[in-house]
């Protein structure tokens, strides 16, 4: 009986802790999401106050829209490339700068700098750097005798250009997330392993990686969501999904239909199909990485 009321009291305290966050979530995010969901069943123009009910028509139309599938394909292509590359590089950087030595702060700060440049400006800079004739990136490649990479005008490699930009921009942030995680691994574990004769590689796979599991789960799930939603570089670096539409992602599709075509019903329907896909992927990832909340 006493235990029961103890648990009960814990539950109430827990709800109180969550209440401010949940109240704000309800008001500013779930509520707009619900309204967008309703919009997706209507024919509604962004700038018009008229709307007519369509039922599932927007959804049916989308499922027959080749350009929608193409945009989903582009989003997934980008995500599949960027997730392993970015995560591996971020972890490598974290391992390189985790221990204290003179000057390490400078390296940490340098690796973190790209993250504090705004995405819009970074995307413009990369657009200029990628220029086939005069961009810094290609001038250097050409100067050291390598073939130039025309990311901006070759549809086959354009997405690689976005992968490089995305990784450059975000790896510093995930580096500090990994650093925070590495910080939680007690040093005596490594010392004990070393006494047992474990080499650095063995120590990495038997201590670091398993103990970073929760952080790793966070990094992978968040990178997946961010990657699938990528928009600004598509809009700026690739000037709106170019060359020849090869970088039009799902988020670009949604933006284009909502704010260019002003077809709000169609855009929100696309957003909800996309939402369901991302959610399912994230839930599978959570299951696989078994990074659940404690019970």
């Amino acid at each position: 009986m006493k235990i029961f009321s103890q648990r009960n009291r814990e539950a109430v305290a827990a709800y109180l802790f969550i209440l401010p966050a949940f109240g704000l979530l309800l008001l500013f995010i779930l509520n707009p999401m619900a309204q967008s969901l309703i919009t997706s069943f209507y024919d509604v123009n962004l700038i018009s106050d008229q709307r007519s009910f369509l039922g599932m028509e927007n959804y049916q139309h989308l499922l027959n829209d080749a350009s929608f599938y193409q945009s989903l394909g582009n989003s997934f292509y980008f995500a599949i490339l960027v997730i392993p590359i970015q995560t591996a590089l971020a972890l490598t950087l974290a391992l390189l700068v985790k221990r204290s030595f003179p000057g390490v702060g400078v390296f940490r700060t340098i690796y973190f700098i790209p993250f504090i440049i705004s995405m819009g400006v970074a995307s413009s800079i990369f657009r200029m750097m990628y220029n086939k004739e005069a961009g810094l990136f290609n001038v250097i490649l050409d100067g050291i005798g390598l073939p130039v990479l025309p990311f901006l005008s070759n549809p086959d490699i354009a997405m690689i250009g976005i992968v490089i930009l995305g990784t450059w921009k975000s790896m510093g942030f995930f580096m500090i997330v990994f650093l925070a995680g590495l910080n939680n691994i007690p040093n005596d574990l490594y010392e004990a392993a070393q006494i047992d004769g474990a080499g650095p590689i063995k120590r990495f796979f038997s201590i670091t990686l398993p103990l970073l599991k929760k952080v790793m789960a966070f990094v992978i799930i968040i990178t997946t969501m961010d990657a699938l939603k990528i928009f600004i570089p598509i809009y700026v670096t690739m000037a709106g999904g170019g060359p020849a539409g090869s970088t039009r992602t799902a988020a670009y599709f949604i933006y284009n239909h909502a704010f260019q075509h002003m077809d709000m019903g169609y855009a929100t329907a696309a957003a909800f199909i996309f939402f369901i896909i991302i959610l399912i992927i994230s839930l599978i990832q959570m299951r696989v990485l078994r990074s659940d909340v404690e019970y």
Binding site: S36, A250, A251, M264, T268, A271, F275, L279
Partner: peptide, 15 residues
């Protein structure tokens, strides 16, 4: 909570 990260901002901006 987590699901709110899966919706593109452009889709809920107007509401």
């Amino acid at each position: 909570f987590l699901s709110t990260l899966a919706i593109p901002f452009e889709a809920i901006m107007v509401p």
